[in-house]
Amino acid sequence: MSDLVKILNVFCLLSLLAVGGGSAVLPQMEHETVTLHHWVTGDQFATIYSLGQMAPGPNMSMVALIGWQAAGVAGLLIALVAFYLPSSFLTYGCSYIWDSFKDNPWRDSVQRGMAPITIGLMLAGVHAVGKTACINPNHTTPFNTVTCTIALAVTGILFAKHINPALLMLIGGVAGWFLLRGH
């Protein structure tokens, strides 16, 4: 099976499984694109993810860069279309018939039941990118100490202050440049 067909399959499936926003598919995306298909390395995945968080627009458009690394411009286009089109079609169709099931009591059950699972998946997403971006066995302990400190500092600062996350990531980049150059 050609890579383009695989890209189409992987991202179509992720699109339809992206419950509770995009971050919940992060662990599955990392597993498919790094471990199974080797389109990107773990390091590249973590970097591409962080670039996606810095760029404006929806935060999962970084799938375009994974498609690009896997199969050039065609891969980029297919990843993007495959990731956004299926869920968009579903939403388009469902927005017509929404009124008929919006008062169904099970809708609330689905939302309350799914909430902790979404959070668990997002935590697994933190693990999926954190295991290369923060606690990376290929890096030295001082290196990992710095990356963990940057991550936890960002978490703490965001809880304490309203500050644009893109700005914080730039600051993280400056801190990385300053503290990690020698390693």
């Binding site: 991550a151 978490t155 600051i171 390693h183």
Partner: peptide, 14 residues
């Protein structure tokens, strides 16, 4: 080095 810092910050954000 800068990208490692950005990637770490993105983990903190998530």
């Amino acid at each position: 080095a800068a990208l490692a810092g950005v990637a770490a910050a993105a983990v903190g954000l998530l």
